[in-house]
Design a protein around this nucleic acid. Sequence first.
DNA 1: GCGCTATATCAGTTTATACTTATATAAGTC
DNA 2: GACTTATATAAGTATAAACTGATATAGCGC
Lengths: 128, 128
Amino acid sequence: MHAFDVLGDPVRRRILELLAERERASGELVEIVGGEFGISQPAVSQHLKVLRDSGFATVRAEAQRRVYAVDTAPLEQVDRWLGRFRVFWESKLDALETEIARGKRQRHLAAQDGVSAASRKPRQTRSA
Amino acid sequence: MHAFDVLGDPVRRRILELLAERERASGELVEIVGGEFGISQPAVSQHLKVLRDSGFATVRAEAQRRVYAVDTAPLEQVDRWLGRFRVFWESKLDALETEIARGKRQRHLAAQDGVSAASRKPRQTRSA
DNA sequence: GCGCTATATCAGTTTATACTTATATAAGTC
DNA sequence: GACTTATATAAGTATAAACTGATATAGCGC
């Protein structure tokens, strides 16, 4: 199953969101996700199997519990695929920044007052 | 249809890859993608409809042709969703960078020779 | 060993979607 | 206006996958 197919399911996305916060036992995921989506224990368990088989999650036994953790390798791959499109919106961000900088400069020239403007630099991409 | 479901199909991903390079007429996409995947014109046209309906592509008429262009808005959303996981591999990259820097420093101290380390990523294969 | 808890797997049903062929729409050409 | 080119839509079919209830597996406490 391709990474994007795995992410196509909202239940699996939700599970990954929860695992992004911290490791969770299967039962914990059944309770939260099963509750939110109104699905049974086997349904959640089957989604966990998909996540395991596709490399998105790892399991560790802890007594009778199965503790799941996210494995980001496939997510990195997805991220890399998206990379080819990133230039589109990043160039737009750059343009916006230029625009903001211009406004800033103009306000500065006009009033000579300190300008806050936050203006966080966009994250440096680590291409590939 | 959710963005990730749209990206779940290899044909649609391929179409988006082609549109990332430049705009393309429907017929051009039918020829390339239809050829690569061995599917008919209606099949490709139906995928184009999905891409239109889900906001991944825009169309412009040019005589009888329909010229498609990528719209990155939904891809940005996907990218934002991925953002919550990015910290995982970026911290790993940071650690790797530190490691490289250490090695570099040590080699530098040891031999006083310049280190190239080019390290260009190989081109990504286009297989789905 | 027995019962309890936690989780996975099995078998079967339903539904979504990705195709197919056939046909409709629409713009250019003569 | 008929013909051709370019593309979309329609109708029907096949298949994958997301469920359900039932059951199997396995560790724990007694």
